[in-house]
Design a protein around this nucleic acid. Structure first.
Lengths: 153, 153
DNA sequence: CAAAGATATTTTAAGCTTGAAATGAATCGG
DNA sequence: CCGATTCATTTCAAGCTTAAAATATCTTTG
């Protein structure tokens, strides 16, 4: 590839990145707004609840942190707040006094079901401009970026 | 479209959103890491400097806030820190004692040039898995989402 | 001109986020 | 068994972010 063509591809990727960032920020902001105004909650709390909903047996703090790719200290704070709300509970882990298992409460599960339904509808509304065929194609491209990034880690 | 096909397209869009979010978070985290470890700065400061670099005559606080789509209070804090570092300066605006014009200092401009060069190379490295043709196509799709979101605002 | 409304910015309170340090507990090698 | 290391979690300090309230100034209108 010539130097000129390389430079052009570079500028195109930079533009793509800026647009990708702008679009995902716009969608994310809309979701945060709606979670806040319609349900008085936040995206981080929703994310933690979603992870817990997929593991009814409970998850250790470190496992939650690993799955959501956020720091341990971050999970501590979010679970603290979910506990205050009565949506999650910490339980001692038999055989390891260092660890804590976190579970949704009944109230938390019911609340999450409501949130998840609304969330899926919102995403569909916000991303309505993309057809299924386009979605599949973009996902493939993003997958190749994600795989690349995974390797670098 | 049948109910079944609609539901399927809905699930595909949700998956696309989750992948979009994951990928852009991964790229953004890599960029934040490198700005921090290699230059001791942050993405918000980089973003403000980038906006200021494009307007050498200076920008008012409110204009900065509007362009970056962040709150006024947020800009106050970031500009405070850039000022402490000696990378930006606030100036009174002739004819409006409420307003402040912000500009990069000479030091700030030199610093930003270094950052911007590194930033562009990083984005190219991180998004290297995407060819120019794919990039162009994805940008079109994202544009349609962004336009849609613009209208909803 | 004075009151009312609009505009520019800062302040405040609350939450999210991180990396690093601290704590307490488990495990491992000798 | 004991000292060293590793592991799970929390605490801490700093920065980013927002919405809402507070300030100060400008503009419009009666």
């Amino acid at each position: 590839m010539s130097v000129e063509v390389q430079a052009k591809a570079g500028k195109t990727r930079l533009r793509l990145w800026l647009k990708l960032l702008k679009t995902s920020n716009a969608v994310e902001t809309a979701l945060r707004d709606r979670l806040r105004t319609e349900f008085g909650t936040t995206l981080p709390r929703f994310d933690v609840m979603a992870a817990l909903a997929r593991s009814p047996e409970g998850l250790k703090m470190s496992e939650l942190s690993r799955r959501l790719r956020v720091s341990n200290g971050n999970v501590t704070g979010i679970v603290d707040r979910l506990e205050v709300e009565g949506h999650a509970e910490r339980h001692a882990v038999a055989g390891d006094r260092r660890a804590m298992e976190v579970r949704l409460t009944g109230k938390g599960r019911a609340h999450f079901d409501t949130l998840a339904t609304a969330h899926e509808a919102w995403v569909n509304e916000l991303m309505g401009a993309i057809t299924e065929a386009e979605a599949a194609r973009i996902m493939e491209d993003l997958d190749s970026v994600a795989r690349d990034l995974e390797e670098k880690r």
